[in-house]
């Protein structure tokens, strides 16, 4: 490939960095709060809630994300075709426009969010359970409510403990965004593959790889800064 061609490929891939970052950003935005809720549900004293949550986590962690993306993308069109569904379901399905541009994106985000929430939930649960009982007792002896105790005493300590494991997940997520191309979501990996075929050259793939590598490096630096910031206490 000539220098001119390489420059062109870099420009194209840079454009498709946006859809990649969109999957990354929205997945984080939704899966971290959802993961916190799932963690609390799993620790619920009401057994059936805890069991159902656990089943959800097992399925999400026990099956490939790629498969989940495919299911999320094809489930609604398939259900639309099937007969004998109750009318409210048919109405609900009819309200989803599967031909719209946002449908594919939404399906990808749903699959990624549900998958990553399960992983985050397990990290957060470990963090919450590692806080000594004495912290809850001290807060209770000071007449703090359960909500105050959770948000002001427990959660800040949990955040410190889950930062290393969470940054691992977040770096994995950057690379996992490439799985979205399985439903033809146009992002960097897909474009790099097209450019590879167009130019009969591996260079576009290396350029895409460099992009992922740079993003992972940036995240690594950010996470070590955050870890250092939280190091003001032991």
């Amino acid at each position: 490939m000539t220098g001119e061609e390489i420059k062109k490929v870099v420009e194209i891939l840079l454009q498709y960095l946006v859809p990649t970052l969109k999957v990354f950003g929205f997945t984080l935005l939704y899966s971290i709060p959802l993961g916190m809720i799932v963690a609390l549900l799993k620790m619920s004293k009401i057994k059936p809630i805890s069991w159902i949550t656990n089943l959800y986590i097992l399925v999400m962690r026990g099956t490939p994300l790629m498969l989940q993306v495919i299911v999320a993308y094809y489930a609604i069109p398939m259900l639309k075709q099937s007969e004998g569904l109750p009318s409210f379901m048919q109405n609900l399905l009819a309200s989803v426009d599967i031909k719209s541009d946002s449908f594919m994106f939404n399906a990808v985000i749903v699959a990624f969010t549900l998958n990553y929430a399960a992983y985050f939930a397990e990290i957060f649960r470990g963090g919450i359970e590692s806080i000594p009982k004495g912290q809850y007792e001290a807060a209770a002896a000071l007449s703090m409510t359960k909500t105050q105790t959770f948000f002001h005493i427990i959660l800040p300590q949990v955040i410190k403990r889950v930062v290393p494991a969470s940054s691992n997940e977040i770096i994995t997520l950057v690379k996992d965004t490439s799985l979205a191309n399985v439903v033809a979501y146009a992002e960097i990996t897909m474009k790099a593959k097209q450019q590879m075929q167009l130019h009969s050259s591996l260079v576009p793939l290396f350029i895409a790889g460099a992009f992922y590598f740079a993003m992972a490096m940036i995240l690594t630096v950010i996470s070590s800064i955050v870890e250092k910031k939280l190091n003001y206490y032991k």
Partner: peptide, 12 residues
């Protein structure tokens, strides 16, 4: 008011 054996101060 209660004072614990292990202090149970809030470390953060």
């Amino acid at each position: 008011g209660l004072v614990f054996q292990n202090f149970n101060l809030f470390p953060h």
